[in-house]
């Protein structure tokens, strides 16, 4: 038995057009831990995230989700067990907030009452008034509110693992800061295993328990923010650290 909640062994991904997104990735996330994935665009960080919920299949290597081969269950079943927060929130624009949030419970066949209860709990959790927004459409909400709804949607069926793809990057800095604060309090409250993709080193330091630095499809370093600062494994990691202001917490 491995100690990893999520694990990849010698995973490589080559796209049909020949570009090599990932090369020989050995990587793991512990239960209850928030792992930040940081790198430039093209570093392979989003590909690694998408391998976990099988939106992308590896060219070689194996992936384990909670100690089971990712391929041991159908992609749909797997995805419904993994929370997912896309960039920009990406709510379904033609659905009400209620319908957006209750998508996965509905796919899993929950009763209407169960869905409604869950909706109320979740919206309160992300600091929104359930009664006020339930029947509104995404366009009627602010960017920050929409992103909270996206987080609520990811948590809807109470998944053990949540994947977040640059969830706060499209927000203005004030709203981003506010949501990051709430994310931290949610994190301690819920104790979920989370993978957070970001290109912002300060966000990675702030939200991640550990950080994976990716460049050109290879892992440069995995470690806590302290380890990255104290012993950067490569010049690239060192250069990343220099860009960031001194740690805040």
């Amino acid at each position: 038995m491995s100690t990893w909640e999520l694990e990849t062994r010698q995973v490589s991904k080559q796209f049909p057009d020949g570009t090599c997104a990932l090369q020989g990735i050995d990587w793991g996330v512990r239960r209850g831990e928030t792992m930040a994935l940081i790198g430039e665009s093209g570093s392979g960080k989003t590909t690694l995230l998408r391998l976990l919920n099988r939106l992308v299949e590896p060219s070689s290597g194996t992936i384990f989700i909670q100690n089971n081969l990712a391929t041991s269950q159908a992609p749909m079943t797997l995805r419904r067990r993994l929370g997912y927060v896309p960039q920009n929130g990406d709510l379904f624009p033609h659905w009400t907030i209620r319908r957006n949030v209750c998508l996965v419970p509905q796919l899993l066949g929950w009763s209407t009452d169960q869905q409604q209860d869950r909706f109320n709990t979740l919206l309160t959790l992300v600091n929104l008034d359930p009664a006020q927004v339930a029947d509104r459409y995404p366009i009627e909400l602010s960017g920050g509110q929409r992103q909270r709804v996206a987080v609520a949607r990811a948590l809807a069926a109470d998944p053990a693992i949540v994947l977040l793809d640059e969830p706060f990057s499209a927000l203005d800095s004030l709203t981003r800061h506010e949501l990051q604060e709430q994310f931290l309090s949610l994190k301690t409250q819920l104790q979920k295993t989370m993978v957070l993709v970001t290109h912002d080193i300060s966000e990675a330091f702030r939200l991640g328990d550990r950080i994976t630095v990716l460049k050109d499809g290879r892992i440069h370093q995995i470690g806590t923010s302290q380890e990255l600062i104290d012993t950067p494994a490569t010049p690239y990691v060192a250069s990343l650290i220099q860009q960031t202001p001194a740690r805040q917490h």
Binding site: N53, L55, M76, T77, L78, R79, R80, Y84, P86, Q87, N88, D90, L91, F92, P93, H94, L103, V104, L107, R153, L163
Partner: peptide
Amino acid sequence: AAPSVVETGRALGMTEWQILRSIRLPL
């Protein structure tokens, strides 16, 4: 039709048929 929204539907575990019927066609 909103490719990123379609991708989100897929990531949340909707089948291709569900995506077509309740996301792509309405949009």
